[in-house]
Simulated assay, not measured.
Amino acid sequence: MVEPERTGRILPVDDPVLEKVYAELARSPWHDPRTLAAATKLTPKEAREALERLLDMGAAEPAAGVPLEAAVRPPGAVSAAWVGRLEEQVLLSHRAVESLTQQYLAARGAGSTSTIRQVRAEEMLRLFAAGQDSCRFSVRGIAAPPFAQTLGANDERQMKAMDRGVAYRTIYAAEALNLPAARASMLRTLARGEEGRFIARTPMKLVIFDEDMALVPTATAAPNHSSESLVIGRSALLDGFISLFETVWEMAMPLGGEGETDVDLGDQERELLCLMAAGSTDLRIARHFGVSPRTVERRIRTVLDRLGATSRFQAGALAARRGWL
């Protein structure tokens, strides 16, 4: 079933009939009882009762010289008081959400009441999921192999967070670009709006939720043991990690989506990008198109130049942003 279109309202009560009568009188103040009823598709009695309710709530007032002996007040005057009360309630709700979010994070070892503690891998993964579910505006991360989760396992949670307006910025270690599963996951999230950059060597792994909590893997034990991470709440130490992220972000190279030129590619060029993003070798691409490897190299360089990309993966990221893959 198609959901009816939602519209704003002027009156302090949610009553479509009153809204209809008010709007009609705002547009046409010279109605008499008969024409008002016809215009609003009400009976004359229903139209009169609606007008009386508008008078009672102050949305209309007695007026001489018009057939109904009443006129509606300006929309701004009618809505100002109750919209002001609503805005105040929204502000109070935001404050309540922020307060409860701090309690939520504190109960999980990451609020202002717990500045720093060490956790095992299982707890870190739980906090990683909870942090994304509760964050309000941003997730910043530095990612490098080996990864604690199966590559792609977090994509759906990240996309849901981005759909509600959370901005993701991730710095990837260059070695991650050599992993097919990592490349596929990056292309999915970049296409949905993640900002990504890469750097030859990352100083550490790190994820920061808003400005409330950071997870910092500190050591990876032997294969049969769990890794350990630090959970850092609001503190000078967290501020330091935020500054570190921003510094590394400025040093890193964009994966795509930044500084793009307005360029459109042909079908064969887009097909070439798909093969590149899938990790196909020049020889395999040459066989696919029935051309020489040298021709493939020349075409790839042309596509990279047109996109303003410096690597195959960056070209793939740009293509993903545009929905070409």
Results as ranks from 00 to 15, higher is better:
Met57Val: 13
Arg95Ile: 03
Ala167Lys: 09
Glu49Ile: 08
Leu272Pro: 01
Ala161Thr: 01
Thr40Val: 13
Ala319Lys: 09
Arg284Thr: 09
Glu5Thr: 11
Gly65Ile: 12
Gly257Met: 07
Ala60Asp: 01
Leu318Val: 07
Thr40Cys: 15
Arg312Ile: 04
Glu123Ile: 13
Ala222Ser: 13
Thr261Tyr: 11
Glu269Gly: 03
Val207Ala: 08
Pro33Leu: 07
Glu122Gln: 15
Thr7Asp: 07
Glu123Lys: 14
Gly152Lys: 14
Ile171Lys: 09
Ile242Glu: 02
Arg53Cys: 00
Thr43His: 05
Cys135Gln: 14
Ser292Lys: 07
Glu194Pro: 00
Phe137Lys: 11
Glu61Pro: 02
Tyr168Ile: 03
Leu42His: 07
Ile285His: 02
Glu260Gly: 04
Val66Gly: 05
Val2Leu: 14
Glu19Lys: 04
Ile116His: 03
Arg126Asp: 14
Ala320Phe: 09
Ala80Arg: 10
Val231Tyr: 10
Ala153Val: 08
Leu11His: 07
Trp30Asn: 15
Gly109Cys: 05
Pro12Ser: 10
Ala143Trp: 09
Glu175Val: 10
Pro180Glu: 11
Leu238His: 02
Arg270His: 06
Lys45Gln: 10
Ile116Glu: 09
Ala236Val: 02
Leu105Gly: 02
Ala23Leu: 15
Ile285Pro: 06
Asp267Lys: 05
Ala37Val: 01
Ala181Pro: 12
Val231Glu: 10
Arg284Val: 06
Glu5Pro: 00
Glu123Phe: 12
Val207Lys: 05
Ala143Pro: 00
Ala106Thr: 15
Gln149Ala: 11
Met276Pro: 01
Leu177Ser: 14
Arg9Glu: 00
Ile199Phe: 07
Pro146Asn: 06
Arg117Pro: 00
Ala129Pro: 00
Arg312Trp: 00
Glu52Asn: 12
Leu307Tyr: 04
Gln158Cys: 05
Arg201Trp: 02
Val2Thr: 15
Ser134Gln: 09
Leu273Thr: 04
Arg312Glu: 10
Leu25Ala: 02
Ser134His: 07
Ala236Asn: 03
Ser28Pro: 04
His225Gln: 13
Gly141Tyr: 01
Asp282Thr: 15
Glu297Lys: 14
Met1Thr: 06
Ala39Trp: 12
Val72Asp: 07
Arg136Cys: 01
Ser28Gly: 02
Met162Pro: 00
Arg183Glu: 10
Ala59Val: 10
Leu304Ile: 03
Asp282Cys: 09
Met124Lys: 15
Arg234Met: 06
Ala71Gly: 08
Gln103Ile: 13
Arg188Ala: 13
Pro217Phe: 02
Leu230Phe: 10
Leu127Met: 14
Val90Thr: 06
Ala106Lys: 01
Arg48Pro: 00
Leu100Pro: 01
Glu52Met: 09
Leu325Glu: 00
Leu325Lys: 05
Leu307Gly: 05
Val17Thr: 14
Val291Gly: 04
Leu11Ser: 06
Ala50Cys: 07
Ile232Phe: 08
Ala174Trp: 11
Phe245Pro: 05
Ala130Trp: 06
Asp282Arg: 15
Ala153Gln: 13
Arg298Cys: 01
Gln268Gly: 03
Leu318Gln: 10
Val216Trp: 02
Arg183Tyr: 13
Gly165Trp: 06
Asp264Ser: 15
Leu55Trp: 06
Leu42Lys: 03
Ala77Phe: 10
Arg234Glu: 01
Gly240Cys: 04
Leu92Ile: 00
Leu92Arg: 14
Trp324Cys: 04
